[in-house]
Design a protein around this nucleic acid. Structure first.
Lengths: 376, 376
DNA sequence: CCAAATAATTCAACCAATAAACAAATCCAC
DNA sequence: GTGGATTTGTTTATTGGTTGAATTATTTGG
């Protein structure tokens, strides 16, 4: 298979882009190979020559993204290989604000959590400035701990339960009572964050990214997060799909019973009224079949082979499975050909925060050349 | 903005990939610029140097993909520019089989229809072999006409109302009564098609691609085609989204009334029962609100800003608009922030056939280097 | 008729990957 | 143990593709 450069991008490509791509390719290859591959092994799996791989690896080692480790146990004749593993810098700061807690963590390049702070407190009475200042405090502690470990931070990302525009503006976060909050600007007020690039995204989107990291396998799935509301993160071909304005995944307001219960959004019969946290506590079987109807819609529309249930759904997954499955079997046209797989989320309550840090790490892994340039 | 090579592709990139990308970039730039740009103008808009553009243009002219035309009317001092326009080779064969007709057309590189043949006849009694042989006959006439015009064909694509796998196998086409039909193999039986690459895809998917060409603007929209069943083609960021197994877009089986009418798929309350061709003839307002409920689900889930109604919906669009719009305003969470736009399809009954030819043309435009090599 | 301006081409330099030769470090066989 | 086989990693010349500057070509305007 020939390498295709993304045709849609209307920017010219030069030799440096080739190097950027191949740097990412080598980095990914090492990251996805747990048994300390040698330069030669990387060359074999990527299709690049050993000479090229050596040159690329030199750059990555110089930037701390890769590290040489002692040779693997003897394996036969020949000069012994020197193994490669992912380095730990740069790391990233993952932040989360939700109705009843604030959280911050630092995740290193390998995906390991190196710092973790959670502060339980009802955020609804606080105004956005207060809440984000408090979060800045947590972030400062996490950063200090990370830097004591010798980690350099590449950036920070914040998970918010609401609609977020591309430049990080929180349009609405109904359960926090926020409207049009410039979260990056407020966060930059904290000295510990002033010098970092700051991204903001929807909580379910980022949780989906976190899940993608740990599932490893399937690059296409829907992550559904049952909270007070219901959010969803859609991962298509290994990429988070955010929608044109970044407002995708509002599965909580899919109509399941057109003339049913009135929802706080003004419409009738929204999924949220039948499978939100309150409704779930009230009647699990109703929640399961409502979820099944909505998920069938997603599968019919997008041919998504895997659905991951997180948030409040994860602990009761086994009791929901049958009810959801029944609706899926009945309502998905292709259920007979290849049924969609249903499974509980692997990450717990930390999913969004870890996914946030992961989004930054992903950026570095996907474009190491950019990081090498920035890090000088 | 720096050019990003698609990181996901796990193939190495070499200098020839750079050239392939830049050839496509130049070709697109000329295609999207109606007023005969010069090499210098192309260089300015792409960011490549004039030297590079000249070299690339030479290759494209040699392959017939671009043509030089007389200079544009005087514009000031200086050596007059020689204009560039898209050539007409290669062209592509678009084929369609549907319940009550067969159709074939030839579309040239610019998107112009150069040949068109339609044969009305009920295809349900015919077995797949007979039907595709008849279609092969139409294709032969279209090809002969095109070649008399000096056109070279790059390939053929067939639109089918059913589920199609990646390698062109028709798994099910309920309204034709087909099951597991190897359409490419049967088509290759026709001498006029034996030497062409043949693609097969779902009718709504291809119609959506056809629509993408003519709308020009929005690269993200949902195309909904009302036929006996209801199909949808989803275009995200200028690319058709086919789903993991190629079975996306089954919007006809979204549940709108969970305890409603029994559908031939076995489930209850499918959209098809309320907004399929029969139901539409029966009660337009019911069809509109059912459609509205289903489309609201799509917008909530995917944040799609534009919905195009085609097939049987196009002629009655004005009478459906209000009913659909009411549901969308009520049921889409972000309707207040930025309502989705609703519009009728620009192409008529030919949409799928033209979209099929267009899919081939798109392939050439997106990777002209491959075509130059093949035609070489 | 010459200067200014714009278009397109030519040519040396550069960058990144390749292929092939080479050096290093081990195993294995005698 | 000593020499050949084997595998890793580096070095070097070559190739393909873009760049930038200089050059040539062709027009308008004074």
């Amino acid at each position: 298979m020939r390498a295709r450069l993304s045709t849609r991008s209307s920017a010219p490509v030069r030799q440096s882009s080739v190097r950027a791509h191949n740097l990412a390719l080598v980095l990914h290859t090492v990251a996805n190979n747990a048994d300390r591959p040698s330069r030669a092994a990387v060359a074999a799996t990527t299709g690049l020559t050993r000479a090229t791989v050596s040159a690329l690896v030199d750059d990555l080692i110089a930037g701390g993204l890769l590290t040489e480790v002692g040779p693997a146990p003897r394996t036969g004749a020949g000069r012994p290989a020197v193994g490669l593993v992912l380095g730990d810098t740069p790391a990233a700061l993952g932040l989360e604000i939700n109705v009843d807690y604030l959280a911050a963590c630092v995740v290193d390049l390998t995906g390991a959590v190196r710092q973790r702070f959670v502060e339980r407190a009802d955020q609804r009475p606080a105004d956005p400035g207060q809440a984000l200042t408090a979060l800045g405090g947590l972030a400062a502690r996490a950063r200090a701990g990370a830097e004591a470990d010798g980690l350099i931070l590449a950036g920070a990302a914040l998970a918010v339960p609401g609609l977020v525009t591309e430049d990080g503006l929180v349009r609405v976060a109904p359960n926090l009572g926020w409207q049009d909050v410039d979260a990056p600007a407020l966060l930059r007020g904290a000295p510990a964050l002033a010098d970092l690039p700051i991204a903001v995204d929807n909580e379910a989107n980022l949780a989906a990214l976190g899940e993608l990291r740990v599932t490893g396998g399937d690059p296409t799935f829907l992550y559904v997060s049952g909270e007070v509301g219901i959010g969803a993160g859609l991962v298509l071909g290994g990429e988070l799909y955010r929608g044109v304005r970044g407002w995708s995944g509002e599965i909580g307001h899919l109509t399941v019973f057109p003339d049913g219960r009135l929802c706080r959004c003004g419409a009738r019969g929204c999924l949220e009224q039948y499978a939100g946290q309150e409704a779930l506590a009230d009647d699990e079987q109703l929640a399961a079949s409502a979820l099944g109807i909505a998920l069938a819609a997603v599968v019919n529309l997008l041919d998504v082979p895997v659905i991951v249930l997180g948030g409040a759904y994860a602990p009761v997954f086994e009791r929901l499975r049958d009810g959801i499955g029944t609706e899926l079997r009945q309502r998905v046209l292709t259920a007979g050909l290849a049924p969609a797989e249903l499974r509980p989320a692997a990450l717990g309550a930390d999913a969004a925060m870890r996914g946030a840090a992961d989004a930054i790490i992903r950026g570095v892994r996907d474009d190491p050349a950019d990081w090498l340039r920035r890090a000088g």
